[in-house]
């Protein structure tokens, strides 16, 4: 195999995936207990939550125009709290909880899209503002009191081993991967998404309704983040006011580590899935090594720089 064919096959998502596997075995060198099937499934399960939450972020970043969604964390929290409260632990109300969560995510995403596409508010500050609106609404409604419970069935179907010892969330994640692939590669919306990501003016001139595509993108992002929040409740079992906050920036990092450019127009969800795996692995590895928190942070930051340096580079000015 010569260098050129090697380069063709070694796409960023594949590099990330290979890296994930290498990291897993590196973990075994540091701590032999790290390598076993249970541990592997556990890590993939953790990665699945980050992966599902990052799905919408992938679409938003590909759509370009400095696209970014900082409201994912707040939407995750909102969806989890809604499900927690509405079901109150009743298995029969899971469907209602899911529907309410998705509707809430839909509304938040739609508002993001309108603010960005029609009012020309920069995505970063618009979605940051919406984070405040969502967190604020949560505070107004709950008054800080988390009433409710998690239905037992959610834990059974999401977090606990379902088929061949694989938890439901991993199966759902894989299914989502297929759906995302179909959406991005096989639909008109997908074509429009990449077109507006590359060049909005060119897209407009070739008949793409740019504003509509942008609004759909942010709406989908809200919807997917809400799905992630619903899933996360099945795992976390309980809700906190900042349940989703730890996912806000990692969702962006997962997308970038998966080879999607922050400048838009290029990327894949399959890359994000690998990115989520890599980030979760590094995190688990650092924990398994028993490093002090301060060193964990420093090593994680350094590794993140190295990771994006592998292929997250911008074009050379001299070209």
């Amino acid at each position: 195999m010569n260098a050129q064919t090697l380069r063709r096959y070694l796409t960023p998502p594949l590099i990330a995936l290979l890296l994930a596997i290498a990291l897993f075995f590196a973990g075994g060198l540091i701590n032999p207990d790290f390598i076993n099937v249970t541990q592997a499934i556990n890590i993939v399960r953790l990665a699945a939550f980050l992966g599902i939450i990052s799905a919408g972020q992938t679409l938003v970043i590909i759509s370009g125009g400095e696209g970014i969604d900082l409201s994912v964390g707040a939407v995750v929290t909102l969806a989890a709290i809604l499900t927690f409260r509405i079901t109150g632990g009743d298995n029969n109300l899971i469907g209602v909880g899911l529907l309410a969560s998705l509707s809430a995510g839909f509304i938040v995403g739609l508002l993001n899209g309108i603010g960005i596409a029609l009012l020309h508010i920069p995505p970063l500050v618009m979605t940051l503002g919406m984070t405040g609106v969502v967190s604020g609404t949560i505070l107004v409604v709950t008054q800080g009191e988390m009433l409710g419970a998690t239905p037992a069935l959610m834990s059974t179907y999401i977090a606990k081993p379902l088929i061949f010892g694989i938890p439901g969330v991993i199966l759902i994640w894989v299914a989502l991967g297929v759906v995302m692939w179909l959406l991005m590669e096989r639909t008109t919306y997908g074509k429009h998404l990449f077109a507006i990501g590359v060049n909005r003016t060119a897209a407009r001139l070739s008949g793409v309704r740019v504003e509509r595509a942008v609004i759909i993108t942010y709406t989908l992002a809200g919807l997917l983040a809400a799905l992630g929040g619903f899933m996360l409740l099945g795992f976390a079992q309980t809700v906190l006011l900042n349940l989703g906050d730890p996912y806000r920036f990692p969702s962006i990092a997962a997308v970038v580590v998966g080879g999607t450019m922050l400048t838009g127009g290029k990327g894949s969800y399959w890359g994000t899935m690998s990115g989520a795996l890599v980030l979760t692995l590094i995190d688990s590895l650092l924990r398994a090594m028993g490093l002090a928190e301060a060193y964990q942070l420093i090593v994680f930051g350094g590794l993140l720089v190295l990771l994006i340096a592998v292929y997250g580079r911008e074009l050379n000015l001299r070209q």
Binding site: I68, F249, I252, A253, V256, M261, L262, T263, L297, I298, F300, G301, G302, L304, V305, I308, A309, G312, R313, E314, L315, N316
Partner: peptide
Amino acid sequence: LRLQPMITTYATSFI
């Protein structure tokens, strides 16, 4: 290194 500013400074923020 020509890395994207947002993600680079996010990474160094951990450090």
